[in-house]
Design a protein around this nucleic acid. Structure first.
Length: 319
DNA sequence: AACCACACCAACCGCAACACT
DNA sequence: GAGTGTTGCGGTTGGTGTGGT
């Protein structure tokens, strides 16, 4: 009857992750690197399915993740990329290296959708007709001319979005506390483990009921102050420490360089980080940038387009 | 203080794509 | 090319927090 579940339901734990589980997972990935998720539950003893482990890592424990408080720039970028790409959150997330697709998706569903709906409503009231500023409307049948015009607009939007993304990156690089990405940054892999140590600290302090939330909050402090895990020392840490005298460093502060079967985690992460700093450019993207750089010398048309209120921009797509 | 409604977000589920044999 | 296993993605759900009454 239907498709079998991805993993045996029996004995598989569900629901929120505990700090202990996080530590175990991070510790394992430090040693073996992300990937081969199928082996993670069996090798770590975690009563989680591989999917859950992967998700936990990519959406939460992975280094270099920024959580909460989307900036105006990011918001703008998401809106434009959504207009361009639709609900392809993974693709959109690739332009926001510090954000996960899940995060962006959540933000879109909880904040931006409503925001745009409001815009749509007010614009609809003003204009006396319904206008959808987001791309969902794009799927409605349109004439070829309209489609072409829309495509052109989308390209403009993409260009601007990309240039904004670049300028964001530049800003981030210049800022005093850049996100923990890139091999040159000493706060690479350790960031997530630092988070976990902080998480544990809060976890120990807080009541069982508020544990989850409290710890989640602490996780957002990527690369912040260093905290010794010894000060908290729950039983789980002991488990993690087993078989390694260097785990303390790994969990605490170490700028990671762990070799595992000829391939360091750092290398793995670096690949990610590199692509994070400079998302891989496809031919089209390169072309967009080429064109952008030409137009950057005071091409107000592009700026106008992006600065255009979404409700107005959407009018371009109307009859 | 108690209740309710809403907001938020981590995690789950199912499907599709990909990789390997 | 077919079959099987694994990973990635997007939609959705459920638990918890928060604000209003």
């Amino acid at each position: 009857m239907g498709r079998p579940p991805c993993c045996e339901k029996e004995g598989v734990k569900k629901g929120p992750w505990t700090p202990e589980e996080d530590i175990i997972l991070v510790s394992y990935i430090q040693e073996h690197g992300p990937g081969n998720w199928r082996a993670v539950p069996t090798n770590t003893g975690l009563m989680r399915c591989s999917k859950s482990c992967r998700l936990r890592w990519t959406n939460y424990l992975r280094p270099g993740i920024k959580r909460g408080n989307f900036t105006d720039q990011e918001e703008k970028l998401i809106i434009h990329l959504q207009a361009l790409l639709g609900n392809r959150w993974a693709a959109i997330a690739s332009y926001l290296p510090e954000r996960t697709d899940n995060d962006i998706k959540n933000y879109w569903n909880t904040h931006l959708k409503k925001k745009l709906k409001k815009l749509q409503f007010s614009a609809g009231e003003e204009g006396g007709r319904t206008m959808n500023p987001i791309s969902n409307n794009h799927h409605q049948s349109v004439s070829k001319g309209q489609w072409e015009r829309r495509l052109q607009t989308d390209i403009h939007m993409a260009k601007q979005a990309l240039s904004e993304a670049l300028s964001l990156d530049t800003m981030n690089l210049e800022s005093p506390s850049p996100p923990s990405i890139g091999p040159a940054n000493t706060c690479t892999y350790a960031s997530s483990t630092e988070n976990i140590s902080r998480l544990l600290e809060n976890w120990m302090k807080s009541t069982p009921k508020s544990r989850s939330r409290a710890s989640l909050g602490s996780m957002s402090n990527v690369c912040s102050e260093t905290t010794t895990i010894e000060s908290t020392t729950p039983a789980a840490i002991g488990k993690v420490m087993m078989g390694s005298t260097t785990h303390h460093d790994q969990l605490g502060f170490r700028s990671v360089k762990i070799e595992s079967s000829g391939r360091s985690v750092l290398q793995e992460e670096s690949k990610e980080s590199l692509s994070a700093v400079a998302p891989p450019l496809s031919f089209i993207e390169n072309w967009l940038f080429d064109d952008l750089s030409v137009g950057n010398g005071g091409d107000d048309d592009h700026q106008d387009l992006v600065d255009l209120p979404l409700s107005d921009a959407s009018e371009l797509f109307q009859d």
